[in-house]
């Protein structure tokens, strides 16, 4: 029975995708969470791990749908064109803002309604445990005197932005290289091709636990509870903090009661002990933001990113 309904929903969703605007018969019973990441990718794993807890804490049936392609452009279009009934939501990450700014997708991040934020992925600076750099100051000093080599995961990404802004703030000019994903870059930190890399804590967790990496700083407002000894970049005298968000967005014109339901549900979910253990293990920072705050946050994040991309000449 469950399989049947799931198939029907998938069909309906794909009908929406092609712009037919099919109506769901049970709008609130089954909620589809759309991600642009492939099965097994970051957002996908995040959603699939969250769903059993979401179901347990607030009830209802949730399914994940992967709408890949166009670096999130297709997923955005599918959600933006869906009926605002509260049956379809998009799992937000900074990717959808970058894709909106870098290309000309049929629906942009501004065509979606931010609902609530759930988490932040802490961004950290790190180096190989057997490197000569003990602190961020060492890396910066090396960049000042010799040839610094820093790495970021993707060419146009929040991580790249962190490195470029760090470079400006510290007044140094290291070579900044980008890779296709965090794993590729991690290898180049481990083999000392790079002095320092930046990435999500989750990506480097395996190497960190094995003692092969050293954390140099947290690129956020606060220290991480798991690593109370690692100072933030701000504490080290550089005014730089970013917040890599994970939340939900829906089509424009969502009814107020749908938004209110999420605003009530998410704090409950984040307080749940079983789920708290899971997300803490996965190095996620709870970062609940109600609707009004999230809308402002998204606008500011978008404006800041756009300014950065324009300033560096990536977009006109």
């Amino acid at each position: 029975m469950r399989v049947c309904r799931r198939t029907v929903v998938l069909w309906l969703v794909s009908a929406l995708t092609v712009g037919c605007g099919a109506a769901t018969t049970e709008p609130r019973r089954v909620v589809t969470l759309v991600t642009h990441s492939s099965p097994g990718g970051g957002s996908d794993v995040f959603l699939r791990e969250m769903i059993p807890h979401l179901t347990r804490v607030i009830g209802g049936t949730f399914i994940v749908q992967n709408i890949q392609g166009g670096s999130g452009a297709k997923a955005m279009a599918a959600v933006a064109h869906a009926r605002p009934e509260g049956a379809l939501f998009y799992a937000t990450t900074p990717t959808f803002i970058y894709t909106s700014l870098l290309s000309d997708p049929s629906a942009r991040y501004t065509d979606l309604e931010p609902v609530v934020n759930l988490f932040f992925d802490p961004e950290v600076l790190y180096t190989a445990a057997d490197s000569t750099f003990a602190t961020l100051a060492d890396v910066l000093a090396h960049a000042r005197t010799g040839r610094g080599r820093w790495g970021a995961a993707n060419p146009a990404s929040l991580e790249r932005q962190v490195m470029e802004r760090l470079k400006q703030a510290a007044g140094v000019s290291p070579a900044i290289t980008t890779f296709e994903g965090g794993g590729d870059m991690l290898i180049n930190v481990l083999n000392h091709t790079l002095d320092m890399g930046v990435g999500e804590l989750q990506e480097i967790r395996a190497q960190l636990d094995a003692g092969r990496l050293r954390l140099l700083g947290v690129v956020g407002d606060d220290r991480l509870p798991q690593f109370p000894d690692v100072p933030t970049v701000k504490e080290q005298g550089i005014d730089l903090a970013v917040r890599k968000f994970r939340g939900l967005a829906g089509p424009k014109g969502l009814p107020a009661d749908v938004i209110a339901a999420w605003e009530a549900a998410i704090p409950k979910l984040l307080d749940d002990p079983a789920y708290r253990k899971l997300y803490t293990d996965n190095s996620l920072q709870p970062g609940f933001m109600p609707h009004a705050e999230y809308v402002t946050f998204m606008r500011e994040f978008g404006a800041e990113t756009e300014a950065f991309l324009k300033q560096s000449g990536v977009i006109q």
Binding site: R48, L190, A206, D209, A210, R212, D281
Partner: peptide
């Protein structure tokens, strides 16, 4: 290393993560 070498092994990595396993030296 806990690092996927191709798209296929990236999906495999996702499989590990989904089951709460972090592949890498400690596994």
């Amino acid at each position: 290393l806990g690092i996927p070498s191709s798209n296929s092994s990236a999906v495999l990595l996702g499989g590990f993560l989904l089951h709460g396993l972090i592949p890498g030296p400690m596994l």
